[in-house]
Write a protein that binds this DNA or RNA. Structure first.
Length: 749
DNA sequence: GTACGATGA
C-alpha cells in the first residue's frame, strides 16, 4: 500500500437523500406529505480543486467533490437561546414568532391538526429539531385538541427535556414552569397552570406507579421513538393498553368526558416508520419535510483497516486544503481519542508556520466536565478546532461551528450476556454503526451552513449497515424493568412490546429477583420486592439498602450505593498516569476492599468540603484523581434515597461507626449472586454460577488472595473481571445459601 | 497484569 497511491475517497454518485430512495414508504396511500414547495435553494459550493493533496506522511490522497443532501431538517437551533428571557422585549418576541412561522412544519399546521383530530394515534416522521418537537405541542394547545388535559412530550435525555421546555416557554412568552414546564430527575418546573410538559421517558414511566392510567394527560407525545431506548419501549407498550382502556371507557359518555380519551403521537426519524404504524393498528403516518444545509458526503474507496490513522490523514487533508471551519471526528472510545490526539499533535507541530494552528478538543462523557466544555469556547483566530468525540456528539451535544465531519463508522455498544444462573455479564464491544447513525453524524456538518462528511468506509459498507440500532431492551439486563412491571401487575414475558427480549435474559432476571427475595417461588412480587421497586436503583442495590436496616448501617450503605449507581466512575483513569493514580488511591485504601475504600473517599471529600471553597474542592479531586462529578451526583442520589427511606420508615441516619462487617453483609444480601471463592490458581469461582472470574487489577484486593469475595459487577473483556470487590466471610455466604447447589432452588422456567 | 459508548430513575 505504501508504494502505490492510496485513493481514499471516491465519488458518491447519488445524493444520499432519504426521500424516495433509502426510505421506502410501505403504504403510500396512508401518508400525508407536508413539505415546503420551494425548498431552500442549494447554495453553489465553493469551487475548489477536489481533495487532492499530500499527507504529512507522504501518502497521496485524492477524491472528487459531489453534491448530496444527507437527510431532512434541523431548522430550530435549540442551543441558540436556551435561557431566553421569560418576558422578552417585543422585538425579540416578534423575532421568535417570525422564526416559528418560517419553520417548514408551519405550512402544514392545519393539515396536521386535522389528522390529529381524526386519529387516536399518529406517527409523525421527520428529523430531530425540524420544529415538530417544539411546534406540535403548541399547535395542539392552541387548537383546543388537548381539551382540559395536559400534553406530555417525552424525551430520552434530560438536557433535551429541559432545553426544549425553555425554548417553548419563550415562544409562549412565558416563564418555564407556568404554561410550559418540565420534569427530569432532580429537577422539576411545573405548576397547576402547566399544560405542556416536557419530561424524560423514565420520569413518565415512574408516574405510572402512582397514576396507572396517566389520567392527567390527554395527549402523550413520544419523541425520538426511533432511538428505541428501554424506557421508550416500555412506555409505548403501556400507552397502547392505557389508550384502549381509556378510549373504551369514554365511549358514549357524551362530550364532557372527552378529556378522558388519550391521543398518542409517536415522533420518529424517517427510518423504521412501518414498525410503529404496525404496532398501533389504525394509526396514521404523517411525513414532515424538513430542511438542512447540504452536506457533501465522501466515502473511502477502500475499506480502512486502521481508522485512527485514516482519520489523522483525512484531518490533515482537510486542514491543508480546505477553507476554515471546525472538524468533528467520531471515534468509538477514549483510547482511540487519546491516541489520535497524540498523533495529530505530533504532525501539527511539523506543519509549516504559515499554516493555521490546530486546537484539539477531546470529548467523551467520562471526561471531566470542564474539559468537555472547552469545545464551546470561541476558536482563536487563525486556528482550526478539531473535536475528537464519541457518540456523545451524535445526539446529546451539538457543537457550533462544525463544517467537516470525519466518521470512522465505529461505535461501542454494551451487551448483556445472560447466564442461566441469574447474574450475567456486560461486555462492551466496538462495532459498525448503523445507517441512521451514519446519517446523524453527517448531519452534524450541516447545522450552520453547507458542510462535508468524510466516511472512512466504503459506500458498499454503508449500504450493508443495518438500518437502525437494535432496541436497547434486547441487549441489557432486565432485573429492574421486570420488577417495575411486576409492581404494575404486568409481566415482561407477556407484555405487548414492539420487540421482545430473549428468554434467557428474562429467566436470568427472574432468577436474580427470586434470589434477592423480590419474588416468591411462584414468581409473584413480595412486599420486599415492592419496597425495592420504590428506590430509583437497580434491585440488587435497593436490596442492600433494605438489608442495612437489620445491620444498623443504612447511612454507610446509602453512601456506597449512591456512588455505585452514579453515572460516572468515582476514580478517574488516565492511561498515562496509572502509577500516580494507584499511588493516590492507596491513601483511601480499606483492608476489606473497594466498597469501604469508596466510603473513605466520600468521607474525606466531605471533610474537604467543610473547609474548602468550590475551586479548592475541585483541586483536591484533581490531585487525588477523583471525579468530582460522580461525588456531586452521588450526593443528589443520596438525598433522593433518603426521601424514599422516609416513606418506608427506614432510619437513614443509622450508622455502625467504623465497623465494616455490617456494611459488607448488607451489600451481600443484594449481591448474593455476585459472590465467588478462591481457587488454588488464584482465580475465583462463582458461588452461584459456573464462571471463573478474576479480580480486576484496579481493585485494592487484586493479588490479595482473600478466600471469598463479593463484587458489584462483572465485565467481560479479554477475561471475566469482577469489579468493586470486598472480602466477605464464608460463613455469611453459607447462611445466604450462596454456596448450596443450584438444585436447591425452585425451577423458575 | 488492566478497563472506561451513550442514556435514565
Amino acid at each position: 500500500m505504501c508504494a502505490k497511491t492510496l485513493r481514499l475517497f471516491h465519488e458518491n454518485r447519488k445524493p444520499a437523500s432519504l426521500r424516495g430512495r433509502s426510505f421506502k414508504r410501505p403504504n403510500p396511500g396512508r401518508y400525508v406529505e407536508i413539505s415546503d414547495d420551494e425548498r431552500r435553494p442549494k447554495k453553489k459550493h465553493h469551487k475548489h480543486n477536489g481533495m487532492n493533496g499530500s499527507m504529512p506522511n507522504g501518502k497521496h490522497v485524492s477524491s472528487k467533490k459531489i453534491n448530496g443532501l444527507v437527510n431532512g431538517t434541523t431548522v430550530v437551533h435549540m442551543d441558540d437561546e436556551p435561557d431566553a428571557a421569560p418576558v422578552a422585549s417585543s422585538s425579540k418576541f416578534a423575532d421568535i414568532q417570525r422564526q416559528r412561522t418560517n419553520l417548514p412544519i408551519a405550512r402544514g399546521k392545519e393539515a396536521l391538526l386535522n389528522e390529529f383530530r381524526e386519529y387516536d394515534v399518529t406517527v409523525l416522521l421527520g428529523e430531530t429539531g425540524s420544529g415538530k418537537t417544539t411546534q406540535v405541542p403548541q399547535y395542539l394547545l392552541e387548537s383546543g385538541i388537548a381539551a382540559e388535559g395536559m400534553i406530555a412530550v417525552t424525551q430520552p435525555r434530560k438536557v433535551a427535556a429541559t432545553s426544549l421546555a425553555n425554548r417553548v416557554a419563550a415562544e409562549q412568552n412565558s416563564r418555564v414552569g407556568s404554561v410550559v414546564g418540565y420534569a427530569v430527575r432532580f429537577d422539576e418546573r411545573s405548576s397547576a397552570d402547566t399544560r405542556i410538559k416536557y419530561l424524560t421517558d423514565g420520569m413518565i414511566f415512574r408516574e405510572l406507579m402512582s397514576d396507572p392510567m396517566l389520567s392527567k394527560y390527554s395527549i402523550i407525545i413520544v419523541d425520538e421513538a426511533h432511538e428505541r431506548s428501554l424506557r421508550t419501549d416500555l412506555l409505548i407498550a403501556n400507552l397502547k393498553t392505557i389508550q384502549q382502556r381509556r378510549n373504551a371507557s369514554s365511549e358514549g359518555k357524551g362530550k364532557g368526558k372527552e378529556k378522558e380519551r388519550l391521543k398518542i403521537i409517536i415522533m420518529s426519524a424517517t427510518l423504521d416508520a412501518e414498525k410503529f404504524a404496525k404496532f398501533f393498528s389504525g394509526s396514521k403516518v404523517i411525513y414532515v419535510q424538513g430542511r438542512q444545509h447540504p452536506v457533501t458526503i465522501y466515502h473511502s474507496a477502500q475499506s480502512q483497516v486502521d481508522y485512527v490513522d485514516s482519520a489523522m490523514r483525512t484531518f490533515f487533508q482537510i486542514h491543508t486544503d480546505q477553507p476554515p471551519g471546525d472538524v468533528l471526528i467520531f471515534l468509538p472510545g477514549q483510547e482511540d481519542i487519546e491516541s489520535l490526539e497524540k498523533s495529530i499533535r505530533l504532525y501539527a507541530s511539523q506543519l509549516p508556520p504559515d499554516q493555521q494552528e490546530v486546537l484539539i478538543c477531546p470529548m467523551y462523557a467520562s471526561q471531566a466536565a470542564g474539559q468537555n466544555a472547552k469545545v464551546f469556547n470561541t476558536t482563536p483566530s487563525n486556528t482550526r478546532k478539531c473535536i475528537l468525540a464519541t457518540n456523545i456528539a451524535e445526539t446529546s451535544i451539538t457543537i457550533p461551528g462544525v463544517k467537516y465531519v470525519i466518521d470512522t463508522g465505529k461505535c461501542k455498544e454494551k451487551r448483556y450476556l445472560a447466564k442461566n444462573t441469574g447474574g450475567g455479564f456486560d461486555t462492551l464491544m466496538t462495532r459498525d454503526i448503523t445507517k441512521s447513525s451514519a446519517m446523524q453524524r453527517a448531519g452534524r456538518a450541516g447545522r450552520e451552513g453547507p458542510g462535508f462528511c468524510f466516511r472512512l468506509y466504503t459506500e458498499d459498507s454503508f449500504k450493508n449497515m443495518s438500518l437502525s440500532a437494535e432496541p436497547e431492551i434486547m441487549r441489557c439486563g432486565l432485573t429492574s424493568p421486570m420488577l417495575q412491571l411486576k409492581c404494575l401487575g404486568q409481566q415482561l414475558e407477556t407484555l405487548d412490546l414492539m420487540d421482545r427480549p430473549d428468554m434467557d435474559s428474562m429467566i436470568a432476571a427472574l432468577k436474580t429477583l427470586f434470589l434477592i427475595g423480590a419474588l416468591d417461588q411462584s414468581g409473584e412480587i413480595t412486599q420486599l420486592g415492592r419496597d425495592m421497586a420504590m428506590f430509583p436503583l437497580e434491585p440488587v442495590h435497593s436490596r442492600a439498602v433494605l438489608a442495612s436496616k437489620e445491620y444498623g448501617c443504612t447511612s454507610e450503605v446509602l453512601t456506597i450505593i449512591a456512588i455505585l449507581s452514579a453515572s460516572s466512575n468515582l476514580f478517574v483513569d488516565n492511561s498515562d498516569q496509572r502509577d500516580a493514580v494507584a499511588e493516590s488511591r492507596r491513601k483511601f485504601k480499606h483492608a476489606s476492599g473497594d466498597h469501604l475504600t469508596i466510603l473513605n473517599v466520600v468521607r474525606a471529600y466531605r471533610d474537604v468540603a467543610l473547609s474548602e471553597n468550590k475551586s479548592g474542592r475541585r483541586e483536591w479531586c484533581r490531585k487525588h484523581f477523583l471525579n468530582e462529578r460522580a461525588l456531586l451526583e452521588a450526593n443528589d442520589i443520596r438525598e433522593q434515597l433518603q426521601q424514599t427511606c422516609e416513606r418506608l420508615k427506614l432510619d437513614w441516619k443509622a450508622s455502625c461507626g467504623e465497623r465494616d462487617e455490617p456494611v459488607i453483609q448488607s451489600l451481600g444480601h443484594g449481591l448474593v449472586m455476585n459472590t465467588a471463592f478462591l481457587q488454588p490458581d488464584g482465580t475465583y469461582k462463582q458461588a452461584m454460577g459456573q464462571s471463573t472470574v478474576k479480580i480486576h487489577p484496579s481493585s485494592v484486593l487484586c493479588d490479595k488472595k482473600v478466600p471469598t469475595i463479593v463484587y458489584n459487577e462483572v465485565v467481560y473483556t479479554n477475561q471475566i473481571y469482577a469489579r468493586t470487590v470486598s472480602v466477605i466471610s464464608k460463613s455469611f455466604l453459607a447462611g445466604l445459601g450462596a454456596l448450596k447447589t443450584t438444585s436447591d432452588r425452585p425451577a423458575l422456567d
